[in-house]
Write a protein that binds this DNA or RNA. Structure first.
Lengths: 204, 204
DNA sequence: TAACGCCTACGGACCGGTAGGTAGAAGTCG
DNA sequence: CGACTTCTACCTACCGGTCCGTAGGCGTTA
């Protein structure tokens, strides 16, 4: 049975709402009633679709990280070299975070928690992406197209500089004068990060 | 009555334990029983010292951020100019985070949450530090001693690059092969961040 | 008829917080 | 000094509420 896009399954609705709630208030701060209420069903009905709160959270997390893996996969294919390729990935990542603010907060919470998911499936999913990124950077550095750094550290630096802006938007809103998630502010942020990293990475 | 340093007040013990618990598991993920048990008293006894869980959390948060404000105050005094002053602050911040991992996680959680504390007292405390940092950078850039960037964005970039490593240590441990919080790993991280930022900031 | 999706009702655990009592230290006063 | 009061820090017992999860029933649809 093919459902039209206009009528998502109850199960899909639960996943959508759960992702939003978990990303806003964390695992402990979200109750199954919160989720069920927003979907428009009772908690036992929700538990008809998912065996437990933990299982629901796991699925939310895996879905979210799979989305991210897809993007990285897609953004890292292409014949570009040196800084141009780095910039393409940065822009793609930035756009992804703009469009998936839930993912950012979810990932940050999980990184902070270091929960049981993290040491296992999640790192198994991220590790290849990380290693691939490091290998690419190493190749470009060896070829003299990028300035030389510790590649893994460099990945961590870029990831921190980009992700923190999104995950800490509430705090940053209090430090800047503008609304940090407005399109204008996001554009400023994007160009700044690219600018700084270009200065640090370009050879000439 | 002057208590010897070896016997902290019950109240102080509660604050110490609470800071650790809240930073590890967040506000919702920590129960007053957890804290009371570790101190070695019952929950009602804990509530004899603090009127509510919220009040305890507020005090933990304010104490932690006051520690941070003290460090920034101290690290930013001095006659240095240009990159040397930036590097001094970076090293001081890095050391502070090494010695206060609780603060990092607490701050990250609060930034993520955007709770009622954040929009108010916390930003009121951080805003002057942030503005002062931006003013310093602007002065140095105008004098030609640092490459020109948007100063506030630059502060956010540095903060994200440094803080993320500490707050996401569990995740990073799964991506790197070393123990991320070991002294050796921390030294590598510190020198890397300084290296990248120097490349981006130095003028010559 | 059988499966499915939802429901009401309930259980057992835990939550933050309150009421009220007790032991002991500290101060007060004849 | 000794008796009495006051205060502090802790306790046990309990409250109403919320948590996740289960049992079992009911209607619709295949």
């Amino acid at each position: 049975m093919v459902l039209p896009a206009s009528s998502p399954t109850t199960r899909e609705q639960i996943l959508t709402v759960a992702r939003a709630r978990f990303s806003d208030h964390g695992f402990a701060g979200t109750s199954l009633n919160d989720i069920a209420d927003e979907v428009g069903i009772r908690r036992p009905s929700l538990l008809h679709h998912f065996p437990s709160k933990d299982a629901l959270y796991r699925e939310v997390l895996i879905d979210a990280f799979a989305d991210w893996a897809d993007l990285v996969e897609q953004a890292t294919t292409g014949p570009r070299e040196g800084w141009r390729q780095v910039e393409q990935v940065l822009r793609a990542a930035f756009t992804f975070f703009e469009e998936h603010p839930d993912f950012v907060r979810l990932a940050r919470r999980e990184a902070l928690e270091g929960g049981p998911m993290l040491e296992g499936e999640l790192t198994a999913l991220l590790r290849p992406l990380f290693d691939r990124g490091a290998a690419f950077l190493q190749r470009e550095m060896d070829a003299g197209r990028l300035r030389t750094y510790d590649t893994r550290q460099l990945l961590l630096t870029g990831y921190g500089a980009v992700l923190s802006y999104f995950s800490d938007a509430p705090l940053i809103g209090g430090l800047l004068d503008d609304e940090p998630m407005s399109p204008a502010s996001l554009a400023v942020r994007r160009e700044h990060v690219i600018d700084v990293l270009r200065s640090a990475l370009e050879v000439n």
